[in-house]
Design a protein around this nucleic acid. Structure first.
Lengths: 149, 149
DNA sequence: TTGGGAGTGAGAACGAGTCCTATTCTATGG
DNA sequence: CCATAGAATAGGACTCGTTCTCACTCCCAA
C-alpha cells in the first residue's frame, strides 16, 4: 500500500481520534483505515472488502461495516449515497474541505465539484431555520459539462 | 380514495404525459398514480404496496417498481433517498416547487424545508460549471429546530 | 374482431447490509 | 511478565428492498 504524506496524516489523525475516544486498536480497523487513506475517490463497503481481499488482507464483512460506522460517527469519513444501490464512503478532510457530486444521466459518470456559494447558502439556511447542521449532502442529476453541449 | 382538485390535476397530468409518450394504459399504473396523488408525503415502494393491499387493490411488486421508474423517468415524481434502507417517492409538482429534507440525528424525524436561496445557488453553480441540472437533492444531517435548542 | 405488443402478477433471485456467536486480541493492573 | 476482562474480529446465516423472469392478460390500432 502506497502511503503519501497526506494520506498518512489522515490515517494518524483517525487513529488518534479513536484512541482518545477510548477504543482499543484492532487489525481489521487498521486495514480499513489504511485502505481508505490510500483512496482518492469514494468506495462502497463491498468494494473495500474486495480490495482488502485482493491485497490478501481478508476482513470480515461485519467488521468493515462496523469500522465505517465508527469512522462516520466521528466524522472521519462521510457516507454518501448517489442513488445507486450501495452507500459510498469518502475521507472527510480535517480542514473541512469537501465536495459534492453530479450524476450524469447520459454518460453515468460521477463528477465531483465544490462551490463556496452553495456552502454559504446552506449555512445561512440552517441558521434561519434553527437547524444545527452537522453534515450535508448535495447530489445533482443531469448532464455533465461534457455531455451538456 | 379522496381526490382533491390538486391531486386530480397531477394525476391527469401524469396520465396525459404517459399517453403522449406512447404508453398504453393499465390497471396497476392507474392504481399507483391515484394513490400517489392522494399523498402529501413521500412513500416507499413497499408502503405503496401495503396501502394498495389495504385498499383491496393488490398490485404486483414488480409493477409498482416499474410504474415508479416510469414516473420518475418522466419527472412526474422524484426519488429521494434519506439514508435509511428504502427509497421514497414524492410527487414532483408541475410548477417546479419542491423541498428538501433534514434528517434529525437525535429524534430521527424527517423535516422538510425549502429555501429559495439554496435553489438560486444551485442554479448559479450549474451554469458556472456547465452542468445541465435536471434535478437536485439536498439532505442535511444534524439536529432539527426542536432538538437543537 | 383480432393480432401483437404493452402491461401485469407471482415468485424466484440478487445484493447490500445486519445479526449472532464463538474466537482472538488489546490494554490494564497485579 | 502474566492474568483477565472486555473490546474487536471472522464468518456465516439472515433480513429485506429491489430486480429479474416468464407466463399470462389487457389495450388498442388496423
Amino acid at each position: 500500500m502506497v502511503k503519501t504524506a497526506t494520506t498518512q496524516v489522515w490515517a494518524d489523525h483517525a487513529r488518534s481520534v479513536l484512541e482518545r475516544a477510548g477504543h482499543h486498536r484492532g487489525g481489521a480497523r487498521d486495514a480499513v483505515i489504511d485502505l481508505l487513506a490510500a483512496q482518492r475517490c469514494a468506495l462502497s463497503a463491498l468494494e473495500i472488502e474486495d480490495a482488502l481481499r485482493a491485497a490478501d488482507r481478508r476482513v470480515g464483512r461485519a467488521s468493515i461495516y462496523r469500522v465505517l460506522e465508527l469512522l462516520a460517527h466521528h466524522r472521519l469519513i462521510q457516507r454518501i449515497e448517489l442513488g445507486d444501490a450501495a452507500a459510498r464512503y469518502e475521507l472527510a478532510a480535517p480542514d473541512g474541505d469537501h465536495h459534492h457530486h453530479l450524476l450524469c444521466e447520459r454518460c453515468h459518470r460521477v463528477v465531483p465539484f465544490n462551490d463556496p456559494g452553495l456552502e454559504r447558502s446552506i449555512e445561512r439556511l440552517s441558521g434561519r431555520l434553527g437547524f444545527a447542521v452537522a453534515e450535508h449532502d448535495v447530489v445533482l442529476h443531469g448532464a455533465c459539462a461534457h455531455c451538456a453541449r
